[in-house]
Design a protein around this nucleic acid. Structure first.
Lengths: 352, 352
DNA sequence: GTTAGCACTCAACTTAGTTGAGTGCTAAAT
DNA sequence: ATTTAGCACTCAACTAAGTTGAGTGCTAAC
């Protein structure tokens, strides 16, 4: 951890704060003027030269002020910034849009994404829970219209998904009962990621003596249900917000940004690699694994059920992001999501 | 219908064609040069002055060439443009991404949207079917975990949606059978839009003598299922494509554009007001009802099941859109969607 | 160690001048 | 009666030169 003396800390903080607010390179004189440091611009100039040498500041060109480097932002985030609290209004806003009356997890995260971008004015992300580890509680086959079967799988996380498949007509009810029991035996109590579709299909061939042609469609339906439950969806909001920032007046950059947002799989993978234990993760510029994001900062927060991290929410914006506010917002919203999820899935499921 | 003599038609067509390709105002000399009209630039100049007087062309400023007006584009689309056929490659591309192996209607339309923007290079839209008119075929209640009921509704359009609700523990199976039969009686055979949730709830109170506390959650679950089936979803693709056009280098315009794309409800309403009978509708600039779209052209095409229009796909781009290509693409894709939908829902539902 | 002063740098802005594609009009040619 | 060549005019877009001002680094005095 990089240690700075008090004066350098004050000056670096002042520069980052100013730059976050103005997007203009910060000069020594304006630091002396706008902040009560009690030093002349000349002294500050010397300190700034030191900070630049240490790699914390950069100069766009000789006669401009300084701009924080990625490393500078990192020190700011880790050591210097003054933590912010949300205002009562902001908290109300979050509660209003997320509290109760939301019946589906997808809805909850969509709303969460909307409220994040509303409060932070950046582009927000929310990914639906990773349900690979959830346990199959029940699987039902329902005959509808004598040649179609509705397959329903239901997990301990309170999710049920269905798939409708056509089987040939004239299948005996007995055969359906046989395969239904088989599936129930094989699948109940195990997690989604443990399901091996091909061995399931193979073994079904062995136990079924009649009506074997129904195996393939039904197993496919089971696979479909499992995929539906396991697949993660990414919600975005406030994508147009990026245009509010002067550094993205450049069309090329804006286009690149939108292209990334359209690559949902890349977003999803970014969101997932938060190590356990870390509730909020800040990636500044070059720290992003994804190359196209090295002009951006990404802040993510995890949410969980029963202390297991299952998904995350986040914000993408310029490196010059208002870190204190975004971190405070995400931290609050992740707690609300945790609370709502446990309401939704736990004992209090009510009404819907 | 505006009638033009042959020479004016040729000149207007040449100007619109050139402007669509270059985005530069077209001058009399370049019309004379690039198209075989056999007239000098001076004559063409006179004709252009006439066309301007008729409101078909506009001049950005005195010493620039001419640009088509909305009315000019309209004449071009209705009378002048040479219809295009898709190339074999394009048709293959469409077939590859839409044919078979798609089990869900949502997937089909998502793919359709993707392929539209891939082929046209504009921003594409696809709205999921309006299912208000579909008929409820069956409704099932499944008891899971002795205090939760899974409600499944299944329609003639092959859609099944479920909702999981919690009822108090210790409900007798008899009560569940009573309400299941009641719901089945009341709902089977009617369309979604005919369902009156409140009268359903009210009458349930009358027929149920015991376990009345389960009525509210269950009716809410029914409502939830119906809403899930009836709600239309809008898929977008190629949103970043707008930046490829020089007329959208302007940030304000680009931002406005993205804002509209985020207002899914506005998009949905635009997509829906295609009168029956019209397969392809072209709205040019000012012809758009939505104010924010008056700098754009919107082309929509309907798709249907059993000859009833249930949804649409479309393209948004600059007024200077490549109309022949977009119209040909949408027309082809709508036919493929019709075909796939009838495969999906009709007799050929197979496996998945 | 701190600061005032000064020469220097350089992006951003202003101004004036140039270019060139395009027009409208008129008079000659067909 | 059309069509066309010729010419004067317009105006956005580009270029070049000059100005401004915020900022720097260095040095010498405090």
């Amino acid at each position: 951890m990089l240690l700075l003396d008090d004066r350098k800390r004050k000056i670096l903080k002042a520069i980052v704060d100013d730059y976050i607010n103005t997007a203009e390179p910060v000069g020594s004189r304006s630091v002396a003027r706008r902040h009560e440091i009690g030093l002349s611009s000349a002294t500050i100039r010397n300190e700034m030269a030191d900070l630049e040498e240490m790699g914390l500041l950069e100069q766009p060109h000789t006669s401009a002020g300084r701009v924080p480097s990625d490393k500078g932002y990192r020190v700011y985030v880790d050591q210097l910034m003054t933590k912010r609290q949300l205002t009562a209004d902001e908290i109300d806003c979050i509660e209003d849009s997320l509290r109760s009356r939301i019946s589906e997890i997808e809805q909850l995260l969509k709303q969460a994404s909307a409220v994040i971008s509303e409060i932070t004015k950046y582009t927000s992300l929310a990914i639906t829970p990773q349900m690979n580890r959830s346990i199959i509680k029940a699987i039902k086959l329902i005959l509808v219209e004598d040649d179609k079967v509705l397959i329903v799988i239901f997990t301990n996380a309170g999710i049920a998904k269905n798939s409708l498949v056509k089987i040939g007509a004239g299948v005996s009810l007995d055969s359906l009962v046989v395969i239904a029991n088989y599936l129930s035996d094989r699948l109940t109590g195990i997690t989604l990621e443990m399901v091996n579709i091909e061995s399931l299909r193979f073994d079904a061939q062995r136990i079924m003596t009649r009506d074997r042609h129904i195996i393939d469609p039904i197993i496919n339906g089971v696979e479909d249900c499992i995929n539906q439950i396991a697949s993660a969806e990414v919600f975005l909001d406030g994508t147009a917000n990026i245009f509010n920032f002067p550094e993205f007046q450049d069309m090329m950059r804006a286009k690149k940004f939108l292209s990334i947002l359209n690559a949902k799989d890349i977003l999803a993978s970014m969101m997932f690699n938060s190590p356990q234990g870390e509730e909020i993760k800040v990636r500044i510029g070059i720290e992003n694994e994804v190359d196209e994001l090295k002009d951006f900062s990404l802040i993510t927060a995890t949410y969980s059920i029963d202390c297991e991290i299952i998904g995350s929410i986040g914000v993408i914006g310029p490196r010059r992001m208002h870190y204190p506010k975004v971190i405070a917002s995400l931290n609050h919203i992740r707690k609300v999501i945790n609370r709502e999820l446990s309401n939704l899935l736990g004992d209090d499921v009510e009404g819907q």
